[in-house]
Design a protein around this nucleic acid. Structure first.
Lengths: 230, 230
DNA sequence: TGAATCACTGGAACGACATTCCAGACATCC
DNA sequence: GGATGTCTGGAATGTCGTTCCAGTGATTCA
């Protein structure tokens, strides 16, 4: 009989690794990266630091676990049946991650952090694997597998992260800002750049205003798909 | 007469924003993200916190300034003459960033952080602009400018960051590890995954071991270029 | 039926950190 | 030669992650 089983028998409100991770995700969603504090966590769970540290090694592990949890849920949410085509499969995975990052804006920085903290982190291989399986079915020769899957993963994480950042930024301007204001804010920030130094960025600012983020995101995915199948 | 000019006249070892940023970059290079502390900074500059805070608003601004500094230097290092082709121009920008992230591994997380912290940060537009100008010369219709430049930027930052992470990770294993060990370490970490859950990742682990990171990175850039011109 | 054991808890305390405060040093200006 | 404003560094503050440890209550064993 494991420790947790025994404890669960004792009290239904017992602390557990799952409850801690769940609370951590809620705190992150509510207040961003800085919102996750052991103090806030003890308050929300009505306990002390020692209790939490018995279930979790440290804050880093907790953040990794929260990230893993959310990403796993996002990748599992996909349609059960096989996609109509590998291309559709890639789009489904991409949109799944896009939605997860949109719902949890702190995910973007966290994923980027795991990417740049060595190959041992659990999440990047999980994502690479999903894209990779679609790439394989796309008929890409094996020598191109890694490059193709990497390109998809890096674009998706980067672009989705930027989208989430824009949404969060627009929320800063006003809690009831509508979509036009949101996109307008980003465009305005870029329009304010020096025309001599940033001719291109200023030119595309208008596109950012007029296009749907999700469509533009998918256009990027299709662009890379085109590169893969070329 | 500005404050800094007058001060420079008084003492050549005077504190200045430039000297602080320079010291910050050195600390980051030496000990990574956690190495930049106001304590370490005061020690290295033989001064107190107040002196630093007179020149710099807070740690975040200092990090942003250091990032901006390094990226600007990397983008300026490119060959002065016009590239032979827009494709070569893209590769030059990509390799410039790749080298900068290789020399300063903390850059990857920092750039990702700026990306996911709103459109006001100075660095992302700087990079987007460089790629964008080449995209324009590639003959891409204006409606596709943003997607093409975004795809390039996100892939380059993500892939270069992952490369830097692997190099840093390998350095952890042993200070005198050679290239084979470095790549072997990453491959070994991926080979240890569950074959049932990670068939693709395990299959590409061998490629990671046998290929040159820089070549693979450029192959990714070319893949996206192929998608853009398709 | 006790006593010993074990998983688990939470309050107190610690060191490191970013940041603020402020009394003073120093060149410059009037 | 006082007044001014720039610039400095030491002391102090509050928050953070983390550790320590005396306890609690269920379980196990004699």
């Amino acid at each position: 009989m494991t420790a947790r089983t025994r404890k669960a028998q004792r009290r239904t409100d017992a602390l557990s690794r799952e409850r801690i991770i769940e609370a951590a995700v809620e705190l992150l969603d509510a207040a961003g990266e800085g919102g996750l504090t052991f103090r806030a966590l003890t308050e929300r769970l009505a306990t002390g630091p020692g209790a939490i540290y018995w279930h979790v090694a440290n804050k880093g592990e907790l953040l990794d676990a929260a990230t893993d949890d959310v990403v796993a849920a996002a990748l599992a949410r996909e349609p059960a049946g096989r996609p109509a085509s590998p291309q559709e499969g890639v789009r489904a995975v991409a949109l799944g991650l896009f939605g997860a990052i949109e719902r949890h804006p702190w995910l973007a920085a966290q994923l980027a952090g795991q990417l740049s903290r060595g190959p041992e982190r659990p999440v990047p291989p999980r994502i690479l694997e999903r894209f990779g399986q679609q790439v394989r079915e796309l008929g890409v020769p094996e020598s191109g597998w890694f490059v193709a899957a990497s390109a998809l993963m890096h674009y998706v994480l980067g672009a989705a992260g930027q989208h989430a950042a824009n949404v969060a930024y627009a929320r800063t301007l006003g809690p009831d800002a509508d979509r036009a204001e949101v996109l307008g804010a980003v465009a305005a920030a870029w329009q304010g750049l020096d025309p001599a130094d940033y001719p291109f960025t200023r030119a595309v600012a208008d596109q950012v205003r007029d296009h749907d983020d999700r469509e533009q995101f998918l256009a990027g995915v299709d662009l890379i798909l085109a590169g893969i199948t070329a």
